[in-house]
Design a protein around this nucleic acid. Structure first.
Lengths: 143, 143
DNA sequence: TTTCCTATCTCAACATATTGATATAAGTAC
DNA sequence: GTACTTATATCAATATGTTGAGATAGGAAA
C-alpha cells in the first residue's frame, strides 16, 4: 500500500504543532515562551557563543535570533558582551539560569504526556525514522 | 534503551521545519507561500466555508486565518461573500484555482524528495506512529 | 422585549520568522 | 594600502502566529 506523502507531512506538522502548544502552555506559568526557553537552552549548552553560532544551532536566521536575543536581554535572562571581531558573546544571567531550571521542571511532565501513547520500542522506531529523514539531503533525488 | 523525549521532539521539529522550507521554496517560483497555498487547499476542499470553520480546519485561531484570508483577497486568489449571521463564505477565484494547480505541480516532486530516504514500509510505519500520537489526548496521563 | 448565551468576525498589541539590504571587523590578494 | 572576501550583526519590510478585548448576529430564557 502506498502512503499519501501529503498526509504524512500534514501529520508531522500537526504533531509538532501540538508539541509546541503543549510545551508553550506549560512554560507560560513560568513566564517564558517555548522559543525563548529553547534559546536559553542553546546558550546554556555553549556559553559565550556568538549570535551567528546560536542562530545556526537553533536552525534560524541571524536576524530572527537577534531579535529573540534582544528580548531575552530586556527580560534580564541573558547578557551580551563584545567578543573578537563583530562577535557578541552570550551568557545566561542568574535569572536566566533560574528560568531554564523552572522550564525544565515544567516541560518534563509534558514530554512524557505527549509521547505517552507510544511504548519504548515505538519511540525508538520513530526516532530512527526521523534520523533517517534528517540524514538525507533535502535535494536528493527520489523515486 | 530509553529514548530521550526532548531529542525526539527536536527531531520532529527539524523534520517539519525542513519540509516547510523545502515546500515554501518550491512554491516561491509560483508566487505563493506554503501557508497561503495550504489555505487555498482548505478552501478548495470545502468551498463556501466560514473563516471560523477554515481556521479550525487548519488548526489556527480565527484571527490568524482572518489576516491570511485578507492577504489572499488582496492577491486575487479568493472571494469572500456574506453568509448567514456573521459568517463570511470563502471561494476560490479563477486565479486561485490556477495557483492551487501550479502549487500541486510544484510540490509533488518535493514530497517525493523529502521522503525519498524511507521505503514504503517505513513510510507506513511513520504514518501509523504519528496517527497514534494524534489519537491520544495531549492531557493524557503518561508513565 | 430585555437579558443572556453562543457563534463569528475584527482590532490591537505583540512574538516569531522570513528575505533583502546594509554596515563593520578581520583576513587575503594584489 | 587598496581591493576582494568572509564573518558577523543589524535595519527595514513583511508574513505568520499568539492572546486579549471588543463588536455584532441570532437564538434561548426570563
Amino acid at each position: 500500500m502506498t502512503v499519501d506523502l501529503e498526509r504524512l507531512g500534514r501529520s508531522l506538522k500537526r504533531v509538532q504543532h501540538r508539541d509546541h502548544r503543549a510545551l508553550d502552555a506549560a512554560l507560560r506559568e513560568t513566564g517564558i515562551s517555548l522559543v525563548q526557553w529553547d534559546a536559553l537552552r542553546a546558550i546554556d549548552r555553549a556559553p559565550g557563543s556568538s549570535a551567528h553560532a546560536l542562530a545556526a544551532a537553533s536552525f534560524q536566521s541571524d536576524q530572527a535570533f537577534g531579535t529573540l536575543a534582544s528580548r531575552l536581554v530586556s527580560a534580564g535572562y541573558i547578557e551580551r558582551r563584545p567578543g573578537p571581531g563583530r562577535r557578541i558573546e552570550h551568557h545566561l544571567t542568574t535569572d536566566g539560569h533560574d528560568a531554564l531550571d523552572a522550564g525544565r521542571r515544567a516541560t518534563d511532565r509534558v514530554w512524557r504526556a505527549l509521547f505517552g501513547s507510544l511504548d519504548s520500542e515505538q519511540r525508538m522506531t520513530l526516532q530512527l525514522l526521523l534520523d533517517r529523514l534528517l540524514a538525507s539531503e533535502p535535494g536528493d533525488d527520489a523515486g
